[in-house]
Amino acid sequence: MIDEKIVKYEKNIVWLVDLKDYPWVREDTADFCQAQGISKSHQSRIERRRKLIGYADLKDKAPPSYTLGTKKHYFRRVFVVRDGDYLVYQYGHPAEGVDPLKVKPKVKAAVMRGC
């Protein structure tokens, strides 16, 4: 479940694909070194195990989730699907499945009901 602190400073949700092809996505969090955008290398790391569908950008003045040495880190929501997800969940969705068309910045996504 996503913590309120994760969504508090969101500015917008960036979708990387056409959402009509995704009736549900998995909502998760990832550790970023910046409050906005995503580097190609970071996207590649996320996509080693799953396809990145979208992510949250934070407001310009969002505080870091933590600092390690001099490097600031920001926990941000990501929306993903795993390889084979739609085959495994032909008639339902995983527990963390959310409707991407209902995702809004600063609002925890409502987990879909049903199987």
Rank of each mutant, 00 (worst) to 15 (best):
G114E: 06
Q90D: 10
R49G: 10
T67N: 11
E10G: 06
V107C: 10
V103I: 10
E27W: 00
K11E: 01
A35Y: 01
G92T: 01
H93R: 04
D28F: 10
I13E: 00
M1P: 09
K59C: 15
S39Y: 11
V111S: 09
K72H: 11
P94A: 08
V111K: 13
F79C: 02
A95W: 09
V103Y: 01
V17T: 10
K59P: 09
P105M: 03
C33Y: 12
E4G: 09
Q34N: 08
D57V: 06
K8Y: 12
Y74M: 02
V103H: 00
V98L: 02
R50V: 09
A110E: 14
V98K: 02
K108E: 08
M1E: 13
G69V: 00
W15T: 12
R50Q: 15
R49I: 05
D28I: 07
A35N: 08
G54K: 04
V78M: 08
I6H: 12
R76T: 01
G37A: 12
R113F: 13
E10I: 01
I38L: 09
H73W: 09
K5L: 15
Q90Y: 10
D85C: 11
E27Y: 05
A35E: 05
R77G: 11
L87H: 14
G37Q: 03
G114H: 05
K5A: 15
D28P: 04
D57T: 02
D31R: 11
V17Q: 03
H93A: 05
K51G: 00
P100A: 06
E4P: 10
D18K: 14
W15D: 06
K11I: 00
K71T: 13
T29S: 13
I6P: 14
V7S: 07
V7M: 07
V81I: 13
L19Y: 02
V111C: 14
R45M: 14
Y55N: 01
L16A: 06
V88M: 03
R82A: 11
S39Q: 13
K51D: 03
I2V: 15
S65H: 06
L16M: 07
G114M: 07
S65Y: 05
K11A: 06
A95F: 08
A62P: 01
N12W: 00
V25H: 03
T29R: 08
F79A: 02
I6D: 13
R26Y: 07
M112N: 04
V98C: 04
Y9V: 04
I6A: 13
P23C: 07
V81W: 00
V25F: 05
V107R: 13
R82E: 15
P23W: 01
G97E: 10
Y91E: 11
A56I: 05
L87S: 15
K71P: 07
R45A: 12
I6K: 10
Y9N: 12
